[in-house]
Amino acid sequence: MDDSALIARFKAGDSGAFDVLVERHQETLLRYARGQCGGSLDAAADAVQEAFLAMIHAVRNGKDILEPIAWLYRVVRNRAFDARRKDRRMIERHQEAARQVATAQEPPPGERLEDEEKRSALRLHFSSLESEVQEILRLKMECNRSYREIATITGHSLAQVSRLIHGGLDHLAQRLRGAGVI
């Protein structure tokens, strides 16, 4: 049963349908929320819970939610935005540190790396991407959202999404090649 059908069932009074929806999406939503909340699991869980609650409420109030999943992400995004605004300083420091490390070193020579180094290189170069690119890549890679959903969630146009994803991957490929990861 697809998501819209689940929503319809829930609207018709089947509360179990909503639980299926939660079960289906909570993990990827949480992943996304975590990225958006600067890694804080608590803040992420709050955001996701609130998104689901907001959806329950919206459906009850007779709202038509045409792309329910994108809608959920969008709410999570806004919640995370608010949460982040509160401790922006911490986040900025974090990002600045990551960027410094990433720019302080030239890409090392091209050969395959040890697993541990591979992972740290990936994390390092990923964290040096622009935050909007990080977000979009997460939505694609970690949350399996389509370009169209990503466009709806982030408010970018489809072409921008395509360009940002491509650009981000291209940048990563270059860095990882330089670092000998690929």
Binding site: Q100, V101, A104, Q105, S120, A121, L124, A179
Partner: peptide, 10 residues
């Protein structure tokens, strides 16, 4: 020079 990841403060 590979992945000098420990450097938090260049």
């Amino acid at each position: 020079g590979v992945a000098n990841t420990g450097i938090t403060d260049v």
